[in-house]
């Protein structure tokens, strides 16, 4: 296995008023291609910051962030946006679907950032929705769908442009146990059958069990690694 993501000596400090708060000071992390990593940790441990750095939605102060051979830490905002569109699928706690679009249109959204033809887009949307088992709900608006269904649509949106990497932020935080397990099963399937590399931030130890390994983050340091 080769490394998909490599963080080397990453530093990150936030300014809050006059105070500056150091989140990471020399963080190192390697995630192999095809890995499924759960990241756990108390509030304020730096989970969210790590998520933003991995997703290219925030920039480190220093250190290296490598993704599949690309140094993304030096990218400007526009380059990062392009990189996110190509390489990362995002899954959020509150699904974050566009209320004015139906399921199929929501899934199509990332394809607007590609040069695919209309026909190819339709085919991709259909494939993605079929993978999450919601093709029969393609024309439904988000408010006509249950929470679990909405999260499936969000997963379809995350995989429709076939990125290597899926980043999940508490994907089951708003769902009941059974539904949560369904969703986690789907993620596991995507990891095992389609080779997606997945990083999932979660509070829930049950959810973490679906991952191949779990990293515990505390005060900006990985405290313990559970295989």
């Amino acid at each position: 296995m080769s490394a998909l993501i490599q963080l080397k000596n990453v530093k990150k400090t936030y300014k809050r008023g006059k105070e500056s708060i150091t989140i990471f000071d020399g963080l190192n992390l390697t995630i192999e291609q095809g890995d499924f990593v759960a990241i756990m940790g108390p509030s304020g441990s730096g989970k969210t910051t790590l998520l933003n750095l991995l997703g290219g939605t925030d920039r480190s102060d220093s250190g290296e962030i490598n993704f599949d051979g690309e140094r993304i830490d030096g990218y400007n905002e526009g380059q990062l946006a392009g990189w996110r569109a190509r390489s990362v699928g995002f899954i959020f706690q509150f699904y974050n679907l566009m209320p004015v679009l139906n399921a199929a249109q929501n899934v199509e959204l990332p394809l607007m950032l590609t040069k695919l033809s209309a026909g190819k887009r339709r085919a991709n949307v259909e494939t993605a929705l079929k993978i999450v088992g919601l093709w029969d709900r393609a024309k439904h608006r988000p408010k006509e769908l249950s929470g679990g269904q909405q999260q499936r649509v969000a997963i379809a949106r995350a995989i429709v442009s076939d990125p290597k990497f899926l980043l999940c932020d508490e994907p089951t935080g708003d769902l009941d146990r059974n539904t949560a397990n369904d969703i986690l099963g789907t993620l596991q399937q995507l990891n095992q059958e389609m080779g997606k590399t997945i990083v999932m931030v979660t509070h829930d130890p049950e959810a973490a069990r679906f991952a191949k390994r779990t990293l515990h983050l505390d005060k900006g340091v990985f405290a313990e690694v559970t295989q």
């Binding site: 946006a81 990362v88 974050n96 950032l113």
Partner: peptide, 15 residues
Amino acid sequence: TKEIGVMKTLGFSSP
């Protein structure tokens, strides 16, 4: 606001 944030996260450029 949140929807715009999501669009940007998905890779829609600010311009």
